[in-house]
């Protein structure tokens, strides 16, 4: 079992992360991944770029805690979460979640759970540059609902 959490301004390469996670582990039967990328539109306005701020220390702690919760619920072998900070432009990658497991059901579920909780619990904030000026992105009720459905 290995857990990797990184907060960085540099881009990431999913193929390298998956190669690292697989190593030569023949017990892995499934790898599920998610990549979040910057859209050029939000709330009906075009977005030129966005800046991501976070709470160093708490960020890593909260993501590790989310992964621990996922491991309590599903058979997870390894998990990698990378979240970028700083200024990003449309098409840029923001976040990567990769989960390995013996079977796909656990890998899919754990990957989605980690992403849903990251959206609502990990201390990151986005500020967008739009044609109307800079604005902080508001939290979405849909994200809270996505995280809450796992409580049922």
């Amino acid at each position: 079992m290995s857990v990797t959490v990184r907060v960085q301004s540099e881009d990431f390469d999913i193929s390298k992360e998956i190669a690292f996670l697989r190593r030569d582990n023949p017990r892995i039967g499934a790898i599920a991944s998610f990549i979040g990328v910057v859209r050029d539109m939000n709330e009906g306005d075009s977005v030129a770029e966005m800046t991501l701020e976070h709470y160093p220390g708490m960020t890593e702690k909260s993501v590790e805690d989310i992964i621990t919760q996922a491991c309590d619920r599903w058979q997870v072998m390894d998990a990698v979460v990378i979240h970028r900070i700083g200024t990003l432009k449309p098409l840029d990658q923001i976040v990567l979640v990769v989960v390995s497991s013996a079977h796909r059901g656990d890998a899919f579920a754990a990957c989605e759970f980690i992403m849903d909780f990251l959206k609502t619990r990990a201390p990151f904030w986005k500020k967008e540059q739009t044609g109307k000026g800079a604005r902080w992105v508001d939290a979405r009720a849909a994200d809270d609902a996505a995280a809450e459905r796992w409580q049922r």
């Binding site: 709470y55 979240h83 992403m115 990251l118 990151f124 904030w125 508001d138 979405r140």
Partner: peptide, 10 residues
């Protein structure tokens, strides 16, 4: 102690 808006990462 830290105060902040609802989070918007991911």
């Amino acid at each position: 102690v830290a105060f902040f808006p609802p989070v918007t990462g991911g």
